[in-house]
Each structure stands twice: as structure tokens, then as C-alpha cells.
Amino acid sequence: MPSVVTANRLTDGIVVYLAADGEWTEEIANARVADDEAETKALEAIADNAVRERVVVGPYPMVVGLKDDGAIDPLSVRERIRAAHRTTLTKDWYDVPL
């Protein structure tokens, strides 16, 4: 199952994803997708190192969907809200669909 690794950045807590270039990105669209378990483990190892390097906090892998055009689809409400980086203050509740 396709997976990405996400975490919060240590300095400001903002939601980030491990990107293809090994950096951390705020855009889930730029996240690196692991196609199998071995690849996911490899991403997790990179993330663990980023914890030791004090770049991110609490990384975890999550299964994502891939749309027809290849866009990454966070599956749960929680991950959709995280990926959206915003709350109901600026958008009404249908912005992150039920």
C-alpha cells in the first residue's frame, strides 16, 4: 500500500512530510510515496535520523490513496485536516469534506 511519512517540525510544530529529495515539505503533494513495506521502512529510517538531528518530532508512516493523476490523497479526516494546515476559522466545515 502506498505510504508517506509525516511528522511535526521541531522549531514551529508545523505538519511536514518527507519529500523525494530527503527534505521535509509542508505540501503533501511533494511527499515521497513508498510503494512497499521495505521502502516505507527506509523512509522511517530517514525520519528517525531527522528526529536525532532535531528536525522533526513524532514521525509516523501513513497509508495514502493515489488519485488517477497520481495526487496523494490523505485518507482519514484527521490527515485531511493536517494536510490542509488550516481550521474552521477561515473556511467553513465543508472545506474538509466529511
Partner: peptide, 8 residues
């Protein structure tokens, strides 16, 4: 100080 969903 908490670390929440989007930020501290």
C-alpha cells in the same frame, strides 16, 4: 506547551 495537530 503542547504539540498539537498543526502546531504548538
Amino acid at each position: 506547551l503542547y504539540l498539537q495537530l498543526h502546531a504548538y
